[in-house]
C-alpha cells in the first residue's frame, strides 16, 4: 500500500475533516495568527478549535501567565478574549480561503451565558461546530466548576443544545474524580462528541524569590508530561462512548504521529495538538505525513479503522 492511499478524512459528529489532526483551543488563537509564518501549511489541519470565547470581553489573569516545568507547560491565561461579538464581526470574516473547519470554544459564568454565546456563533454561520468548555481550570467562576459535577455539566450542555443544531463537543477535565460519569451526563444531555483532556491543575514555585511563578498561583499543566494521563482518560471514556457511538477528540501532550496513533488506539477518532504548536509550527504537517507512513506500513486504509483497536495483553 502506498502512503498516498491512506485515507485520513474523518467525520466527527457531522464535521467532515480532511485530516484527523486538529489544533487545541487556546494554542492556536483565532486561527489567523500562525498564517503569518512563511511556509505554514494550514491544509494539514483538519479543524481549528478557537480560543475560548465568552459573551463579554475578558481581561484574564495577571501575568506571568506561563511557566515551563519538566516536560510540560503550565499556564493560567484565564480566558482572555475580546468577546463573542468582536470574534464574529472582526476576526472570523477575515479568514477567507482557510481550509480547516472552525470549531468555536464557548465559555461563560452561567449556563445561560454559554447559551447566549453559542447562539451568536450559530447565527453567524461562521463556525462548523461548538466546543463547550466546561473544564477551564483557571477561572474563578464557570469553567471547571461545571465540569467537575455531572449535574452542572448536564445543565450547561442542555442550555447550549437548546440554541444550536451545530455539532456539539463537550470538553472534559482530567481533574474531576469520575470522568466517565461526566461523559455520560454530557452525552445524555445532547453532546455529539467529547474532547479530552483539558489541562491538569498544578503550580510552579521560584525557590529564590519564594513566590509562585504564575500570577494566578495555580495553573493548568499541558505538554508531553500529561500524555499518559490523557491516554488513560481517553481509554476510560471510550468504554462509555463506544456504546453511544460518540466520537472522542483526544488531546494532551501530543507531539508527533506516534503519539497520535496511541490516542487513536486508546479510542480517539481525531486528535488535537496543543502546546507542541508553540515549539514546532509544522507539527500538524509532520504528523499527517507520519500517520500516512504508519498506515501504509500497517496496511490500514482509513484512519477511522484504528479507533479503539487496542489489543489486550495475552
Amino acid at each position: 500500500m502506498k502512503n498516498s492511499d491512506a485515507n485520513l478524512s474523518v467525520n466527527i459528529a457531522g464535521i467532515k475533516m480532511t485530516s484527523p489532526v486538529l489544533t487545541a483551543s487556546g494554542t492556536f488563537g483565532f486561527a489567523s495568527e500562525y498564517t503569518r509564518v512563511n511556509r505554514f501549511r494550514a491544509d494539514d489541519i483538519g479543524g481549528v478549535m478557537l480560543k475560548g470565547t465568552t459573551l463579554e470581553p475578558r481581561e484574564g489573569n495577571p501575568p506571568p501567565r506561563i511557566a515551563e516545568t519538566s516536560a510540560g507547560v503550565l499556564n493560567a491565561i484565564g480566558l482572555q478574549n475580546p468577546g463573542v461579538e468582536h470574534v464574529i464581526t472582526e476576526i472570523l470574516p477575515s479568514l477567507t480561503n482557510f481550509a480547516p473547519k472552525l470549531i468555536a470554544n464557548v465559555a461563560g459564568n452561567t449556563p445561560l451565558e454559554y447559551g447566549k454565546v453559542t447562539k451568536r456563533f450559530d447565527e453567524s454561520g461562521l463556525v462548523h461546530g461548538i466546543e463547550v468548555n466546561i473544564s477551564c481550570p483557571n477561572v474563578k467562576r464557570g469553567g471547571a466548576l461545571f465540569g467537575h459535577d455531572p449535574v452542572a455539566s448536564s445543565r450547561v450542555i442542555k442550555a447550549v443544545r437548546k440554541v444550536t443544531s451545530l455539532p456539539l463537543i463537550a470538553k472534559l477535565s482530567p481533574n474531576s474524580t469520575d470522568i466517565c460519569s461526566i461523559a455520560t451526563a454530557c452525552i445524555d444531555s445532547g453532546a455529539d462528541a467529547l474532547s479530552l483532556i483539558n489541562t491538569l491543575q498544578g503550580m510552579a514555585i521560584d525557590s529564590e524569590t519564594r513566590c509562585p511563578i504564575l500570577g494566578n498561583v495555580c495553573g493548568g499543566l499541558s505538554g508531553p508530561a500529561v500524555k499518559p494521563v490523557a491516554l488513560w482518560k481517553v481509554h476510560q471514556v471510550y468504554q462509555v462512548t463506544k456504546k453511544h457511538r460518540v466520537p472522542i477528540i483526544g488531546m494532551g501532550g501530543i507531539e508527533n504521529a506516534k503519539d497520535a496513533i496511541e490516542f487513536f488506539l486508546a479510542g480517539a477518532s481525531a486528535v488535537a495538538v496543543g502546546s507542541a504548536m508553540f515549539w514546532n509550527y509544522r507539527v500538524c504537517t509532520e504528523m499527517v505525513a507520519g500517520i500516512r507512513r504508519w498506515m501504509s506500513k500497517h496496511n490500514i486504509r482509513r484512519v477511522s479503522q484504528i479507533t479503539g483497536k487496542l489489543k489486550t495483553r495475552k
Binding site: 495568527e33 501567565r65 506561563i66 499556564n75 482572555q80 508553540f278
Partner: peptide, 16 residues
C-alpha cells in the same frame, strides 16, 4: 519583557 508561550500572539500568555 514577559514570560512567553508561542510568541505569535496565539496563546495570550505574555500580556502587559
Amino acid at each position: 519583557e514577559q514570560r512567553m508561550g508561542c510568541a505569535m500572539g496565539a496563546c495570550m500568555a505574555c500580556v502587559q
